[in-house]
């Protein structure tokens, strides 16, 4: 085994957030890709110009948070049009959205709200994924949510629901390992079994982020506001064993730390992926 640091076996990216833009533009750190939330760049702000500049040097993963693919009403065509226009300008390497709903009856609730996993939800969700993929001209990756409640009428396990969406629509999957950990803790299911039910060939990106424990109740809250927790790193290692090296994102949206901290987390993810490679080669 060589002592020199190998080329990372998987591309690790970080979320691009406004306070870090200047430092990244000046120091040009080695980063596999930059991720941005699509909705933050749909208005003609100076931030869009900065993104288009950075785009020349870094691949972009465009992450939508508000398309509301799970709404039991028509997709917002105006929002889809703006999403498409942004894709044409940014030319991202990947485009992703969520297994969730956020809007109903003209009110946008600004959260990734949980769906009941029923045959009706599956039909509606798949129709919307197909409509969005056609309108955007791109294959979407769909991310598993973190959740704080589940419905009494929700017979399909989430991982099977995800797998069926991928099978029917041809979409890929963002496997958010932190979300699996959070939901598994909140509802007492086995996170490894969840990974085992996701189709290997559909996994296009892995997400890692921080969470915290709620104050009065035994619930974990996904907050993207701290370092990745140790059990989540362990679950990430398990995900790498199952899926192989997959482009991985360090997400951090609240209590933003110094850029250095994000790069340190990204480096740790690379190390885990590389360690995995040596095990595979042995």
């Amino acid at each position: 085994m060589t002592k020199s640091r190998p080329i990372p076996s998987c591309s690790v990216g970080i979320g691009l957030r406004l306070p870090h833009v200047t430092e990244i533009a000046v120091t040009r750190p080695t980063i596999g890709f930059l991720e941005v939330h699509a909705e933050n760049y749909m208005a003609e702000t100076p931030a869009l110009d900065r993104l288009l500049e950075l785009r020349r040097d870094y691949p972009i993963s465009l992450h939508g948070v508000a398309l509301s693919l799970g709404s039991a009403e028509e997709l917002d065509r105006c929002h889809l049009d703006r999403f498409k226009a942004l894709i044409e300008r940014v030319e991202p390497m990947r485009v992703s959205e969520h297994l969730a709903w956020s809007a109903i009856g003209g009110a946008y609730l600004n959260d990734l709200l949980p769906l009941p996993y029923t045959e009706e939800s599956l039909d509606i969700f798949c129709d919307h994924v197909e409509e969005a993929q056609e309108a955007l001209g791109r294959r979407l990756l769909i991310e598993n949510p973190s959740a704080y409640l589940r419905y009494t009428q929700s017979p399909i396990p989430e991982a099977e629901f995800m797998a069926e969406v991928a099978r029917r629509t041809g979409c890929g999957i963002v496997c958010d390992v932190n979300n699996i950990h959070v939901s598994a803790w909140n509802f007492g299911f086995d996170p490894i079994a969840y990974l085992d039910n996701l189709p290997i060939e559909a996994i296009g990106e892995i997400h890692l982020a921080g969470h915290h424990a709620a104050e009065d109740v035994d619930i974990l809250i996904d907050d993207h506001g701290s370092r990745v927790a140790e059990p989540v790193w362990e679950l990430y290692a398990a995900a790498l064993r199952r899926f192989g090296p997959v482009p991985t994102l360090i997400e951090w949206d609240a209590n933003l730390p110094a850029l250095e901290v994000l790069l340190d987390e990204a480096h740790h993810a690379e190390e885990l992926a590389d360690a995995r490679r040596y095990v595979d080669a042995a």
Binding site: D111, L149, R150, Y151, T152, A214, I219
Partner: peptide, 18 residues
């Protein structure tokens, strides 16, 4: 609330998180 599992917590408190 009737559509939400308690899982050891008041369903209304779960909605409250959202």
């Amino acid at each position: 609330v009737a559509a939400i599992q308690g899982d050891g917590l008041d369903p209304a408190a779960r909605v409250g998180i959202y």
